Simulated assay, not measured.
Amino acid sequence: MRPQSHCLCPLIPDLENHTRVLILQHPDEVRHALNTARLAALGLANVELRVGEHFPELEAELAGREAWLLFPGEQALCVGELVATATPAERLLIVPDGTWRKARRILHCNPWLAQLPRLSLGEGLVSRYRLRKAPGPGALSTLEAIVHCLNTLEGAGRFDALLRPFEALIDAQIAAMGEETYRRNHLGETPAD
C-alpha cells in the first residue's frame, strides 16, 4: 500500500509466534502513512488485524479463551509477569491500534473488552517512533508494543526483525521532509543564525 519506490516488503520478516495476536485497528488508522499495525500483521504468522470501532462478534468468539488486553490500567499485569501463567499457544494478546484517544474509543464501544485482564509494558521503555510525540513516558507504537510483548513472552530478540521495516519507514519519512524540517518540527530545534 506504499509507492513502489518506498516499498518495505523486502524488509518484512516472516516470523512464527506462538502467542496469538489480535489487532483491533481504528478505521482512521488504515490509510495512515505510518501504519505500524499493518507491519505487524504482515510480519507475524499468528496474527489477525480487524478494522472497526465496534466488534460485537468478538465477545462470543473469545468466550473461554485466555485473552489479555494490552492497555494500561490500574490492575494491569506487567507483561513479564505473564510468562509463567500459561503456555504461549493458549494466550491471546488483544492490541487496540490508534491514537490513545481512538484506542480508548474502541474500549468504550466494546465494554466487555475493557473488562478483560490487562497487560502493561513496564517501566523505562523508549519509543523509536521519532515522528510522533509520545503522550507520556513508555508510550510505544503498536508495532513496538507487540515486539516488546512477544520478545518478553517467547524469547528476547526473537521478534526484533519486525523493527527493521519500522526503522526504514521512519527514516524515509524524515528524508522526505528534510533534516531541517524534521529537526524543527520533531526535535524542537531552531535553525542557527
Rank of each mutant, 00 (worst) to 15 (best):
residue 53 E to H: 01
residue 63 A to K: 10
residue 57 E to L: 12
residue 38 R to M: 13
residue 167 E to T: 12
residue 21 V to F: 01
residue 101 R to F: 11
residue 37 A to M: 04
residue 183 R to M: 08
residue 149 C to S: 15
residue 20 R to W: 10
residue 65 R to W: 12
residue 136 G to P: 05
residue 26 H to Y: 05
residue 150 L to D: 04
residue 73 G to D: 10
residue 55 F to C: 00
residue 146 I to S: 01
residue 105 R to T: 15
residue 95 V to C: 01
residue 24 L to F: 07
residue 127 S to R: 02
residue 91 R to F: 01
residue 46 N to V: 14
residue 154 E to L: 01
residue 151 N to T: 04
residue 137 P to I: 10
residue 168 A to W: 06
residue 4 Q to L: 14
residue 59 E to T: 06
residue 102 K to L: 14
residue 107 L to F: 10
residue 17 N to C: 11
residue 137 P to M: 07
residue 64 G to V: 08
residue 47 V to T: 14
residue 37 A to P: 07
residue 68 W to S: 03
residue 1 M to V: 07
residue 88 P to M: 03
residue 59 E to W: 10
residue 92 L to W: 06
residue 134 A to S: 14
residue 44 L to W: 07
residue 2 R to G: 09
residue 168 A to M: 08
residue 103 A to C: 15
residue 156 A to W: 04
residue 17 N to Y: 12
residue 93 L to R: 01
residue 165 P to N: 14
residue 81 E to H: 13
residue 177 M to Q: 13
residue 119 L to M: 09
residue 112 W to Q: 05
residue 192 A to C: 11
residue 28 D to S: 15
residue 142 T to S: 03
residue 139 A to C: 15
residue 185 N to C: 12
residue 164 R to I: 10
residue 173 Q to F: 09
residue 182 Y to G: 07
residue 99 T to V: 00
residue 191 P to V: 07
residue 35 N to T: 09
residue 66 E to W: 02
residue 117 P to D: 08
residue 182 Y to P: 09
residue 94 I to E: 06
residue 175 A to H: 12
residue 192 A to Y: 13
residue 120 S to W: 03
residue 51 V to D: 06
residue 142 T to R: 01
residue 75 Q to P: 00
residue 177 M to I: 05
residue 12 I to S: 02
residue 6 H to C: 06
residue 30 V to M: 13
residue 133 K to C: 13
residue 97 D to W: 00
residue 117 P to K: 08
residue 36 T to K: 02
residue 129 Y to E: 02
residue 142 T to F: 00
residue 117 P to H: 09
residue 149 C to V: 12
residue 28 D to I: 13
residue 99 T to E: 12
residue 63 A to N: 10
residue 99 T to F: 00
residue 107 L to C: 11
residue 83 V to S: 09
residue 50 R to S: 08
residue 167 E to H: 09
residue 127 S to L: 04
residue 5 S to H: 14
residue 17 N to T: 11
residue 16 E to T: 11
residue 37 A to R: 02
residue 135 P to C: 08
residue 149 C to P: 00
residue 158 R to W: 05
residue 65 R to C: 13
residue 178 G to N: 09
residue 95 V to I: 06
residue 77 L to I: 14
residue 115 Q to A: 15
residue 96 P to L: 12
residue 9 C to N: 14
residue 119 L to V: 11
residue 9 C to I: 05
residue 143 L to I: 05
residue 127 S to G: 04
residue 116 L to F: 07
residue 58 L to S: 04
residue 77 L to K: 08
residue 133 K to W: 10
residue 113 L to N: 01
residue 82 L to Y: 03
residue 36 T to A: 02
residue 42 L to A: 15
residue 107 L to N: 03
residue 70 L to E: 10
residue 115 Q to Y: 10
residue 157 G to A: 09
residue 159 F to S: 01
residue 144 E to V: 01
residue 28 D to F: 10
residue 59 E to Y: 09
residue 66 E to L: 08
residue 118 R to C: 10
residue 128 R to I: 05
residue 160 D to I: 07
residue 71 F to H: 13
